[in-house]
Design a protein around this nucleic acid. Structure first.
Lengths: 141, 141
DNA sequence: TATACTTAGTTGCTACAGCAACTATTAAAT
DNA sequence: ATTTAATAGTTGCTGTAGCAACTAAGTATA
């Protein structure tokens, strides 16, 4: 092979992402939350009553994913969907009491995970990583 | 929100990975190859006759993924599976003529994509990104 | 040799991920 | 006012991704 697989930075990023997501999944499992479901919850803990459109934009995800993740979260009893009165196409997503209660357990966990992941990495290095990844996104836009 | 979603480097990496993979998917679509299927093909172009165990290790993927991706590649006519005579549990994976023929189209494409992604990024920056991502993997091992 | 352990691969399950096509509803244009 | 556009969300499809449990086959041990 002219270029080894690991030399493709895209593959390196991809595999790193998988490891990280796998670890997050493990840590969230006790709370019956999947990683991406947790991102929705984080947005709702900040402010609930958002519609799916907004969640889709904030998470840069296809709206179909949002639909399905919310169905799961609703089934678990963490959120409820309410049809918007003034525009019946739109649904607003609210936290249940159970969903609200998760925050105090999960936020410390994600913050602690962030510290674990970045331990031994300087602020400068982290800034460079952010800048380079942003540049890469620009490059393929 | 105390920490915005984008401030979690894990999420930033994840979203970057999704953008990159999405772009790779588009570019490979004309060749009827999905991104991860292409990784298998790259290993086979280098040397075919590998067994699924080896592909699994090289790609750091669960063996179930390998099984399913190979089924798809086999159905497309790019590879064929042959049961190993000396150990009938093992199957060796070989390229078909059609599979071999893809190489000369796809390798230049992936190399060009790599150049596109990394354009405007210095070798030093790239080295830092690799080092930091490796460190992160270590941190959660 | 018979039993237990190990290994290679498959199948079933859940969770993303995004495209295409669909319904329902609202807004805009003629 | 009626037709047309656009918008919000859902469903069906294919492709990852990994765990658990399984079959089949080979190895080790009593």
């Amino acid at each position: 092979m002219n270029i080894a697989l690991k030399d493709y930075i895209s593959i390196f990023i991809h595999q790193t992402d998988l490891k990280i997501t796998g670890c997050v999944k493990e840590r969230l499992a006790p709370f019956n939350l999947a990683p991406e479901q947790n991102l929705i919850m984080m947005l709702l803990w900040e402010r609930d009553g958002r519609n799916q459109q907004e969640l889709s934009e904030q998470l840069e995800k296809d709206k179909t994913n949002i639909t399905r993740m919310l169905s799961s979260l609703e089934q678990k009893g963490f959120v409820k969907r309410v049809i918007e009165t003034y525009d019946r196409r739109s649904t607003r997503v609210f936290l249940t009491e159970e969903g609200k209660a998760l925050e105090c357990d999960v936020i410390p966990l994600t913050d602690e995970f962030h510290r674990t992941v970045t331990s031994g990495v300087t602020e400068e290095e982290l800034a460079i990583v952010r800048r380079v990844l942003s540049k890469m996104r620009e490059n393929i836009k």
